[in-house]
């Protein structure tokens, strides 16, 4: 568990064997820990990378180990994995889907196309990287990235979430 427990040294009863124990931590840490441990991602396969995303979710690489389950609706998901080339027609839809996701929401740009257009960089109709339309948290390079690379990207996102502050009330 990513929480640093603070042991009450002044209370010997708590530290005794068999006692259920008390853990003191900050709300920020508990929230971040639970968020990173149940990062549900949206099923939104766009192009070739989507097949590797499916491979990562399937039997061999198994996203479930990280508490990641795919959800079909943006309203139930925390993470959008942009897995493919974004073009002008799709860009509008991606912004729409991103807006529908509940906060806190995260975006992984998977593959060269989502990162900067990749092999299709600079062509008419192609958006040169998904960061031009929505904020991106983690970029995963590759064309397409191996499932290990995507898993590494997810672990990087976990690190990022663990170090987040509490949201400031406006």
């Amino acid at each position: 568990m990513g929480v640093n427990p603070v042991v009450h040294s002044g209370d010997p009863e708590i530290n005794a064997a068999g006692h259920p124990g008390v853990l003191t931590t900050s709300l920020r840490k508990v929230l971040n820990w639970s968020r990173k441990a149940s990062l549900w991602y949206m099923t939104f396969g766009i192009a070739c990378c989507a097949i590797e995303m499916m491979a990562t979710g399937a039997s061999r690489y198994d996203f479930d180990r990280f508490g990641m389950i795919f959800r079909a609706s943006p309203r139930q998901s925390d993470l959008m994995i942009v897995s493919g080339t974004v073009n002008e027609k799709l860009a509008e839809r991606i912004v729409n889907l991103y807006d529908q996701m509940a906060e806190p929401r995260y975006v992984i740009a998977m593959g060269a196309c989502a990162t900067n257009g990749g092999p299709y960089h600079g062509l008419y109709n192609v958006v040169n990287g998904v960061h031009e339309i929505i904020p991106v948290d983690v970029y995963v390079p590759g064309c397409p990235p191996r499932p290990e690379a995507l898993l590494h990207g997810v672990l990087q996102l976990h690190e990022k979430i663990l170090n987040e502050g509490l949201p400031v009330r406006a």
Binding site: I46, T85, N87, R93, V126
Partner: peptide, 11 residues
């Protein structure tokens, strides 16, 4: 269709 048009033929 057209959400994944990547200009293959022209490119």
């Amino acid at each position: 269709i057209g959400y994944l048009h990547r200009c293959f033929e022209k490119h």
